[in-house]
Protein backbone atom coordinates (compact mmCIF):
# COMPACT_ATOMS: atom_id res chain seq x y z
CA UNK A 1 0.00 0.00 0.00
CA UNK A 2 1.48 3.26 -1.10
CA UNK A 3 0.30 6.34 0.71
CA UNK A 4 -0.53 9.06 -1.76
CA UNK A 5 -3.07 11.74 -2.35
CA UNK A 6 -2.72 12.29 -6.03
CA UNK A 7 -4.72 14.41 -8.36
CA UNK A 8 -6.47 11.99 -10.63
CA UNK A 9 -7.98 12.67 -14.01
CA UNK A 10 -10.82 10.25 -14.65
CA UNK A 11 -11.04 9.16 -18.27
CA UNK A 12 -14.67 8.12 -18.35
CA UNK A 13 -14.46 6.45 -21.79
CA UNK A 14 -17.05 7.08 -24.47
CA UNK A 15 -19.10 3.96 -23.85
CA UNK A 16 -19.52 4.68 -20.14
CA UNK A 17 -20.34 8.29 -20.93
CA UNK A 18 -23.05 7.27 -23.37
CA UNK A 19 -24.41 3.98 -22.19
CA UNK A 20 -23.78 3.53 -18.49
CA UNK A 21 -22.87 6.60 -16.45
CA UNK A 22 -23.23 4.59 -13.23
CA UNK A 23 -19.87 2.98 -14.01
CA UNK A 24 -18.31 6.46 -14.10
CA UNK A 25 -19.89 7.45 -10.80
CA UNK A 26 -18.80 4.17 -9.25
CA UNK A 27 -15.23 4.78 -10.41
CA UNK A 28 -15.39 8.29 -9.00
CA UNK A 29 -16.46 7.06 -5.58
CA UNK A 30 -13.84 4.36 -5.45
CA UNK A 31 -11.04 6.71 -6.45
CA UNK A 32 -12.12 9.27 -3.87
CA UNK A 33 -12.16 6.53 -1.26
CA UNK A 34 -8.55 5.86 -2.21
CA UNK A 35 -7.88 9.37 -0.97
CA UNK A 36 -7.54 11.05 -4.31
CA UNK A 37 -8.81 14.30 -5.64
CA UNK A 38 -10.67 13.29 -8.78
CA UNK A 39 -11.39 15.56 -11.71
CA UNK A 40 -13.34 14.74 -14.85
CA UNK A 41 -12.01 16.99 -17.60
CA UNK A 42 -14.89 17.96 -19.93
CA UNK A 43 -12.52 18.08 -22.91
CA UNK A 44 -12.42 14.29 -23.18
CA UNK A 45 -14.42 12.30 -25.73
CA UNK A 46 -13.04 8.95 -26.82
CA UNK A 47 -9.58 7.36 -26.84
CA UNK A 48 -9.74 7.09 -30.63
CA UNK A 49 -9.79 3.33 -31.07
CA UNK A 50 -12.58 3.31 -33.67
CA UNK A 51 -10.36 5.39 -35.96
CA UNK A 52 -7.10 3.69 -34.98
CA UNK A 53 -8.49 0.19 -35.50
CA UNK A 54 -9.98 1.18 -38.85
CA UNK A 55 -6.62 2.25 -40.21
CA UNK A 56 -7.53 5.93 -40.01
CA UNK A 57 -4.23 6.95 -38.49
CA UNK A 58 -4.71 10.64 -39.15
CA UNK A 59 -7.91 10.95 -37.15
CA UNK A 60 -6.59 8.62 -34.48
CA UNK A 61 -3.62 10.94 -34.07
CA UNK A 62 -5.83 14.03 -33.84
CA UNK A 63 -8.07 12.41 -31.23
CA UNK A 64 -5.07 11.19 -29.26
CA UNK A 65 -3.83 14.78 -29.14
CA UNK A 66 -7.09 15.98 -27.60
CA UNK A 67 -6.84 13.26 -24.96
CA UNK A 68 -3.20 14.03 -24.24
CA UNK A 69 -4.05 17.70 -23.83
CA UNK A 70 -7.12 17.06 -21.70
CA UNK A 71 -5.10 15.02 -19.23
CA UNK A 72 -1.99 17.13 -19.01
CA UNK A 73 -1.20 18.05 -15.45
CA UNK A 74 -2.76 15.13 -13.59
CA UNK A 75 -0.60 12.91 -11.45
CA UNK A 76 -2.50 9.85 -12.54
CA UNK A 77 -5.09 9.16 -15.20
CA UNK A 78 -7.51 6.32 -14.57
CA UNK A 79 -10.00 4.69 -16.92
CA UNK A 80 -12.59 2.02 -16.12
CA UNK A 81 -11.58 0.03 -19.21
CA UNK A 82 -8.65 -2.18 -20.14
CA UNK A 83 -9.21 -1.49 -23.79
CA UNK A 84 -9.07 2.32 -23.63
CA UNK A 85 -6.21 2.20 -21.12
CA UNK A 86 -4.35 -0.16 -23.43
CA UNK A 87 -4.87 2.29 -26.27
CA UNK A 88 -3.29 5.12 -24.30
CA UNK A 89 -0.55 3.09 -22.66
CA UNK A 90 0.47 0.81 -25.54
CA UNK A 91 -0.50 2.62 -28.71
CA UNK A 92 -0.48 6.40 -28.38
CA UNK A 93 3.28 6.63 -28.64
CA UNK A 94 3.23 4.54 -31.84
CA UNK A 95 1.07 7.21 -33.46
CA UNK A 96 3.83 9.78 -33.01
CA UNK A 97 6.91 7.84 -34.12
CA UNK A 98 7.85 10.73 -36.42
CA UNK A 99 6.96 13.57 -34.07
CA UNK A 100 9.35 13.74 -31.10
CA UNK A 101 7.44 16.49 -29.27
CA UNK A 102 4.12 14.68 -29.31
CA UNK A 103 5.79 11.34 -28.80
CA UNK A 104 7.28 12.65 -25.57
CA UNK A 105 3.88 13.88 -24.45
CA UNK A 106 2.29 10.55 -25.39
CA UNK A 107 4.98 8.64 -23.48
CA UNK A 108 4.42 10.89 -20.53
CA UNK A 109 0.68 10.23 -20.48
CA UNK A 110 1.28 6.54 -20.98
CA UNK A 111 3.46 6.46 -17.89
CA UNK A 112 0.76 8.13 -15.78
CA UNK A 113 -2.23 6.09 -16.96
CA UNK A 114 -3.73 3.06 -15.25
CA UNK A 115 -6.80 0.93 -15.61
CA UNK A 116 -9.19 1.25 -12.66
CA UNK A 117 -8.60 -2.14 -11.02
CA UNK A 118 -4.85 -1.76 -11.50
CA UNK A 119 -4.94 1.52 -9.64
CA UNK A 120 -7.33 0.38 -6.92
CA UNK A 121 -5.50 -2.86 -6.20
CA UNK A 122 -2.30 -0.89 -5.77
CA UNK A 123 -3.53 2.16 -3.89
CA UNK A 124 -6.83 1.50 -2.17
CA UNK A 125 -6.79 0.19 1.38
CA UNK A 126 -8.74 -2.97 0.71
CA UNK A 127 -10.66 -2.55 3.98
CA UNK A 128 -12.09 0.62 2.52
CA UNK A 129 -14.09 -1.18 -0.12
CA UNK A 130 -16.73 -2.40 2.36
CA UNK A 131 -19.12 -3.44 -0.37
CA UNK A 132 -21.52 -6.26 0.03
CA UNK A 133 -23.00 -8.64 -2.49
CA UNK A 134 -24.65 -11.87 -1.51
CA UNK A 135 -24.18 -14.11 -4.48
CA UNK A 136 -21.81 -15.62 -6.96
CA UNK A 137 -19.91 -13.84 -9.70
CA UNK A 138 -17.92 -14.96 -12.70
CA UNK A 139 -15.37 -12.55 -14.17
CA UNK A 140 -14.56 -11.97 -17.84
CA UNK A 141 -11.03 -10.75 -18.44
CA UNK A 142 -11.23 -8.48 -21.43
CA UNK A 143 -8.49 -9.18 -23.97
CA UNK A 144 -6.77 -5.80 -23.92
CA UNK A 145 -6.69 -5.77 -20.12
CA UNK A 146 -5.45 -9.32 -19.94
CA UNK A 147 -2.91 -9.39 -22.73
CA UNK A 148 -1.84 -5.78 -23.20
CA UNK A 149 -1.83 -4.76 -19.55
CA UNK A 150 -1.54 -8.09 -17.73
CA UNK A 151 -4.62 -7.50 -15.60
CA UNK A 152 -5.76 -10.73 -14.03
CA UNK A 153 -5.12 -10.79 -10.29
CA UNK A 154 -6.18 -7.22 -9.53
CA UNK A 155 -9.94 -7.56 -10.13
CA UNK A 156 -9.99 -10.87 -8.29
CA UNK A 157 -8.14 -9.42 -5.33
CA UNK A 158 -10.65 -6.57 -5.21
CA UNK A 159 -13.70 -8.81 -5.58
CA UNK A 160 -12.42 -10.99 -2.74
CA UNK A 161 -12.97 -8.06 -0.37
CA UNK A 162 -16.68 -7.87 -1.11
CA UNK A 163 -18.72 -9.38 1.72
CA UNK A 164 -20.79 -12.36 0.67
CA UNK A 165 -19.40 -12.53 -2.83
CA UNK A 166 -18.27 -15.88 -4.18
CA UNK A 167 -16.12 -15.91 -7.31
CA UNK A 168 -16.54 -18.86 -9.67
CA UNK A 169 -14.33 -19.02 -12.76
CA UNK A 170 -15.80 -19.97 -16.10
CA UNK A 171 -14.40 -22.40 -18.64
CA UNK A 172 -12.24 -21.19 -21.55
CA UNK A 173 -11.57 -18.06 -19.58
CA UNK A 174 -8.90 -16.55 -21.84
CA UNK A 175 -10.99 -16.52 -24.97
CA UNK A 176 -12.31 -13.35 -26.52
CA UNK A 177 -16.01 -12.44 -26.25
CA UNK A 178 -16.14 -11.39 -29.90
CA UNK A 179 -16.79 -7.69 -29.30
CA UNK A 180 -13.72 -6.06 -30.82
CA UNK A 181 -15.34 -2.60 -31.07
CA UNK A 182 -16.29 -1.93 -34.69
CA UNK A 183 -15.60 -5.60 -35.41
CA UNK A 184 -18.98 -6.42 -33.89
CA UNK A 185 -20.65 -4.00 -36.31
CA UNK A 186 -18.65 -4.99 -39.39
CA UNK A 187 -18.82 -8.73 -38.82
CA UNK A 188 -21.95 -9.05 -36.68
CA UNK A 189 -22.57 -12.71 -37.48
CA UNK A 190 -19.02 -13.83 -36.75
CA UNK A 191 -19.05 -11.73 -33.60
CA UNK A 192 -22.43 -13.20 -32.69
CA UNK A 193 -21.12 -16.75 -33.00
CA UNK A 194 -18.11 -15.96 -30.82
CA UNK A 195 -20.16 -14.30 -28.09
CA UNK A 196 -22.55 -17.23 -28.12
CA UNK A 197 -19.72 -19.44 -26.90
CA UNK A 198 -18.77 -16.92 -24.24
CA UNK A 199 -22.38 -16.63 -23.06
CA UNK A 200 -22.72 -20.39 -22.80
CA UNK A 201 -19.52 -20.55 -20.73
CA UNK A 202 -20.92 -17.82 -18.48
CA UNK A 203 -24.16 -19.75 -18.04
CA UNK A 204 -22.29 -22.97 -17.33
CA UNK A 205 -20.50 -21.26 -14.44
CA UNK A 206 -23.95 -20.99 -12.81
CA UNK A 207 -23.43 -17.67 -11.13
CA UNK A 208 -25.82 -14.85 -10.28
CA UNK A 209 -23.61 -12.24 -11.91
CA UNK A 210 -21.16 -11.71 -14.70
CA UNK A 211 -18.67 -8.93 -14.18
CA UNK A 212 -15.73 -7.50 -16.05
CA UNK A 213 -13.72 -4.35 -16.48
CA UNK A 214 -14.76 -3.32 -19.99
CA UNK A 215 -18.22 -2.05 -20.82
CA UNK A 216 -17.95 -2.97 -24.51
CA UNK A 217 -17.40 -6.65 -23.77
CA UNK A 218 -20.05 -6.59 -21.07
CA UNK A 219 -22.65 -5.03 -23.39
CA UNK A 220 -21.86 -7.70 -25.93
CA UNK A 221 -22.17 -10.61 -23.52
CA UNK A 222 -25.15 -9.09 -21.70
CA UNK A 223 -26.94 -8.66 -25.03
CA UNK A 224 -26.30 -12.30 -25.85
CA UNK A 225 -27.32 -13.53 -22.41
CA UNK A 226 -30.59 -11.60 -22.73
CA UNK A 227 -31.19 -13.08 -26.17
CA UNK A 228 -30.56 -16.56 -24.82
CA UNK A 229 -33.10 -15.91 -22.06
CA UNK A 230 -30.47 -16.25 -19.34
CA UNK A 231 -30.98 -14.85 -15.83
CA UNK A 232 -27.35 -13.98 -15.24
CA UNK A 233 -27.13 -10.27 -14.42
CA UNK A 234 -24.25 -8.17 -15.67
CA UNK A 235 -22.40 -5.40 -13.81
CA UNK A 236 -19.11 -3.63 -14.36
CA UNK A 237 -16.69 -4.40 -11.54
CA UNK A 238 -16.70 -0.73 -10.47
CA UNK A 239 -20.41 -0.97 -9.75
CA UNK A 240 -19.96 -4.05 -7.58
CA UNK A 241 -17.04 -2.58 -5.65
CA UNK A 242 -18.87 0.70 -5.09
CA UNK A 243 -21.95 -1.17 -3.84
CA UNK A 244 -24.09 0.07 -6.72
CA UNK A 245 -25.79 -3.16 -7.71
CA UNK A 246 -29.12 -1.58 -6.86
CA UNK A 247 -29.33 0.04 -10.31
CA UNK A 248 -30.74 -2.23 -13.04
CA UNK A 249 -28.07 -4.53 -14.47
CA UNK A 250 -26.88 -4.10 -18.05
CA UNK A 251 -29.74 -4.75 -20.41
CA UNK A 252 -32.23 -5.10 -17.57
CA UNK A 253 -35.59 -3.29 -17.56
CA UNK A 254 -36.22 -0.56 -15.02
CA UNK A 255 -38.67 -1.49 -12.30
Amino acid sequence: MEQISPRIGLFVTCLVDLMRPSVGFAALRLLERAGAEVVVPPEQTCCGQPAYNSGDVEDARAIAKTVIEAFEGFDVVVAPSGSCTGMIVEHYAKLFENDPTWKARADNLSGRTQELTQFLAQHLDLNEISAQFDGSVTYHDSCAGLRELGIKDQPRKLLATVDGLVLKEMDDIESCCGFGGLFSIKYPDVSGAIVDKKASNVEAAETDLLSGGDLGCLMNVAGKLKRRGSNVRVYHIAEILAGMTDVPALGEDEA
Binding site: D17, L18, M19, S22, A222, G223, G251
Partner: peptide, 15 residues
Protein backbone atom coordinates in the same frame (compact mmCIF):
# COMPACT_ATOMS: atom_id res chain seq x y z
CA UNK B 1 -25.74 -6.60 -34.03
CA UNK B 2 -29.34 -7.28 -32.97
CA UNK B 3 -29.68 -10.24 -35.31
CA UNK B 4 -27.39 -12.15 -32.98
CA UNK B 5 -27.96 -10.46 -29.62
CA UNK B 6 -29.94 -7.75 -27.86
CA UNK B 7 -28.58 -4.25 -27.61
CA UNK B 8 -28.48 -2.95 -24.04
CA UNK B 9 -30.27 0.40 -23.79
CA UNK B 10 -28.52 3.43 -22.29
CA UNK B 11 -29.18 4.26 -18.66
CA UNK B 12 -30.25 7.77 -19.60
CA UNK B 13 -28.27 11.02 -19.65
CA UNK B 14 -24.60 11.03 -20.53
CA UNK B 15 -22.10 10.83 -17.72
Amino acid sequence: WTKARDLPAPQGGTF
